[in-house]
Amino acid sequence: MKLLKYYTYALIAMLYIPIIVMILYSFDNSKYFGEWNGFTLRWYEQLLHDTQAWSALKNSMVVAVLSAVISTAIAIPAALMARDREKDIVSLMIYPPVIIPEITEAVALMLLLIYLGFPLGLVSVLIGHTAFNIAYAYIALSPVGGTGARLAVAARTLGADRFTAFLKVTIPVSMPGIIAALGLTFMMSFTDFIKTLFTKGPGFDTLPILVWNRARRPGLTPYTSQPAIAALATTLILISIAIALAYTLYEVRRSEKQGEL
């Protein structure tokens, strides 16, 4: 049993060692991974003046925020108000977006957009992200869906019309689920790489795309030296973990509250 414990701890440590090592290298005054030339902050200073990175961050934020809001807004009525038979249709439709590999749906969407002559850029990326995010928003909302619907029925027996019941009862009751859906879809979009790669067109870069471009051609410019990439990746990981932590804390607090009720 002791052996099993050490094994498990070691296995979990293996999940984190690479990330820790990468963070260390982002402070490395050298040009390549694997050699240590002393501590430096210059890769982070360079990042501060990196106009490409700032513009990519702005693009990522815009796409992630818009996609989170739009996909959640589309999923809300379906998840919170639909009747059972309608939910069956929806469940059937959101299943494939979750299980089909992202690269195939990215390629398919790209083809459609090109056929339609739709310009590739912010809007096309936004559409791509929203297409998979609707499924995740719906899944995040479904646990609160039942309660909201039941209480809305109660409100209507008390004289509220359908719209008022939805606005005054269903939405407030479902707030935890709505916030969960927004958080989840924001993260999915903010970190998405593959769908963006196929639908972005030239000139529109998000942070993951920037990382990809630089990681593919390492060492050619100061921005693409390996520690510089590590610094960029570290920054992105810290953002991801910060959002994930906030989201997790929110979920824990929420379940604790429900536990008290």
């Binding site: 090592v21 990468m22 790489f193 990681a215 390996q226």
Partner: peptide, 26 residues
């Protein structure tokens, strides 16, 4: 332990690939 096992889900494969690269080189 569960939290530690779940956290990697929040870090994109792209970033984790770069992290693995640092280990590989090391």
């Amino acid at each position: 332990l569960l939290a530690l096992l779940l956290t990697p889900f929040w870090i994109d494969v792209l970033l984790r690939s770069i992290a693995i690269k640092t280990i590989i080189y090391t």
